[in-house]
Design a binder for these strands. Structure first.
Lengths: 153, 153
DNA sequence: ATCGAGATGTTACAACATATCATTTGTATT
DNA sequence: AATACAAATGATATGTTGTAACATCTCGAT
């Protein structure tokens, strides 16, 4: 049983536990994201799936399925890049802190990390001083990944 | 001379100093953003300008002009909200640190702040540990503004 | 006055996203 | 197994956001 299958297995369990179903199409879309191992736009993902599985899924379905997967916390939408990425923690069974996303602007690889709570609190304090209130600590940051840093050097 | 006019005056100086021109149309678009006092989508801004100045500017022009204004650092694009906002520092003549943006998800008001350098450095360190490199500390954060916090309470 | 660069207009279209209604599928009940 | 209902998907249309390409206009320098 390979890595992808293990993740899909977990996703299936997760859905079952939530009274939802990871249907064939949903599985295909999620697998597309996992296999790509980077963030994809909805239409990139659509093309990938259609090539990979020899189907002709309509765009509508991909959007619907992405919405479902987001609701199940199996996929994250990255507004900064306008792309979607598989959650990095599907195989973990424990709860995670609110994640932050490092997005490689070169190749769309994404790393999901947990910023130090102390740092988050400093941020929150800075925001608070400005009279605003942070409603999400799910930060997205424009970065370069290891591979693309080397390439640039 | 009112507030808006003062800002526009500064913007004009700024452009002159950079060998560019703040034309009538560009002025209209910038004034639209300043008057709105919040982030607007390109098409919202287009509508605003067309109503305000009785014109029929094509969408293309707004995008072109926004690009120009961004290049001149008179306008910021907020990817998180897919909207544009006037720079808060047009009237200042001194240089500013890379700004961070607090975006009210309720009303699109935006506050441009400077996060503590120490906090930024912690963030950068966190990113670095993950093997990535921050290429912009221009963070965008989903918030509620003062007005909308009260309203919600 | 004329010329050229830069700005704007026009048209077409690509990319991203949602609304709505029809059809199919999967599951629970009989 | 037949039925019937809910959930999922298909199909179509349309709305929103953004760009490409080429034509025209305008301002400023000569």
């Amino acid at each position: 049983m390979n890595h992808v299958d293990r993740i899909i297995g977990h996703a299936e369990q997760h859905c079952k536990a939530h009274g939802t179903r990871l249907t064939v199409k949903r599985k295909q879309v999620l697998m597309g994201l996992i296999q790509s191992d980077k963030a994809l736009s909805a239409y990139e993902l659509l093309d990938f799936c259609n090539r990979q599985y020899g189907e002709k899924m309509p765009a509508m379905s991909v959007y619907r399925i992405l919405e479902f997967l987001e609701d199940e916390h199996l996929v994250h939408k990255l507004s900064l890049a306008n792309k979607y990425v598989a959650c990095a923690h599907i195989v973990c069974n424990h709860a995670h802190a609110v994640p932050q996303f490092l997005i490689c602007r070169q190749c769309s690889k994404v790393k999901e990390i947990a910023i130090e709570p102390a740092t988050i609190n400093e941020l929150r304090a800075n925001v608070s001083e400005a009279g605003f209130k942070l409603i999400s600590t799910q930060l997205e940051m424009n970065c370069l990944c290891e591979g693309c840093i080397e390439q640039a050097a």
